[in-house]
Design a protein around this nucleic acid. Structure first.
Length: 335
DNA sequence: CGCCAGGTAAGGA
DNA sequence: TCCTTACATGGC
């Protein structure tokens, strides 16, 4: 049911974890086998400059239909598959400089699990990114400078799991976000795993293998269109059979990864760039056709109409290298 | 009822 | 290569 360890494609960078390691290792981790239920296990991750947890949480709380995590009391809880097993974790930032990663439910972490989870969280919140250049560029830009003030410290929240990222993009094609969230919720409730914990139900997005026996009709009954249902089944098949993976896409140049994705029927340039942005962490991803982006620019530039393709290209030429962050910050003005 | 929504594919100039 | 159009489905 859960993906094999490593299948999910976390990238381990041999020399990127050094700042975290010494801190994590002398965290007061309790780890004997007879651990009582109320023992908590946690470790800490150092936070980069220009990071505001609250700004990220505000973004993440935008939909009441979000079903893959719960925000409460200045923290966030979610299920994560670590070492091939289900874990319920909680993230908080009790201090400016450190993020606390706590295990609420599941087997205590092995050192390898902890590394994997640390990678997951760093990836999720894009903690490795140096935002200085973007902020420098934005501070001199008439459209972006108000945004980096309003949303200071916001990180491009990622979707580390390729299948989830693809499905989220697919269900979000040409529908309003409210409906997209409902579709994701139905997919998750029907096909995902659930865990009850302290009166709440936590859910994880289904693994692609789960769709092996699922029919078009079954997906359509969740109010997915036939095209979307078809595309999701095809993507599930490709990932489950190993023909498509995050690691494989990461090994390619962005354009090649995009091409590999758009070769799949039902995945066009918007979806491919969306995945580049949220999953592959490609900062040059540019959703030029995105309606939300058009509306955001119309709003911040006080236009009477939506921007033309030419205007978009001119604008984004100023933000080269940071297209994804510019887009992510622009989207924020809409919600 | 009508327009819109974080599109895509197919067909034609 | 660049435009048009059909499609599909709910939100408001």
């Amino acid at each position: 049911m859960w993906q094999q360890p490593g299948m999910n494609g976390f990238t381990f960078d041999a020399d990127s974890g050094d700042t975290e390691v010494d801190i994590a290792e002398d965290a007061d981790t309790v780890g004997d086998d007879t651990m009582p239920d109320n023992v908590t296990i946690h470790f800490w991750l150092p936070l980069p400059a220009i990071f505001d947890f609250q700004a990220c949480l505000t973004y993440m709380s935008r939909s009441p239909f979000e079903c893959l995590y719960k925000l409460e009391a200045d923290g966030i809880n979610r299920l994560v598959p670590i070492g091939g097993e289900i874990h319920l974790i909680r993230l908080t930032c009790p201090t400016e400089r450190m993020m606390r990663v706590e295990l609420l439910y599941g087997e205590p972490f092995s050192p390898e699990d902890q590394d994997e989870l640390a990678c997951y969280v760093r990836d999720w919140f894009d903690l490795e990114r140096n935002l200085e250049p973007f902020y420098q560029l934005a501070s001199a830009d008439p459209l972006l400078s108000p945004l980096i003030k309003s949303f200071y410290g916001l990180r491009l929240v990622g979707i580390p799991d390729l299948f989830e990222a693809l499905c989220w993009a697919i269900v979000g094609q040409q529908v309003n976000l409210t409906f997209a969230y409902k579709l994701k919720q139905r997919l998750t409730e029907v096909y995902g795993d659930a865990l009850e914990w302290e009166g709440n139900t936590y859910r994880s997005f289904p693994a692609p293998e789960r769709f092996q026996e699922v029919t078009l009709e079954q997906l359509c009954s969740l109010q997915l269109t036939k095209n979307k249902a078809q595309t999701i089944l095809e993507v599930a098949r490709l990932i489950a059979s190993g023909q498509l993976s995050r690691d494989q896409l990461l090994a390619l140049k962005p354009e090649a990864a995009e091409h590999k994705l758009t070769a799949i029927r039902g995945i066009g340039p918007w979806t491919a760039h969306y995945v580049r942005m949220r999953c592959l962490r490609d900062q040059t991803a540019f959703l030029i056709g995105d309606v939300g982006l058009h509306n955001a620019i119309k709003h911040v530039a006080a236009l009477e109409r939506k921007p033309t393709v030419g205007e978009l290209q001119t604008l984004f030429a100023n933000w080269r290298g940071w297209e994804a962050y510019a887009t992510f910050y622009l989207w924020r003005v809409l919600y």
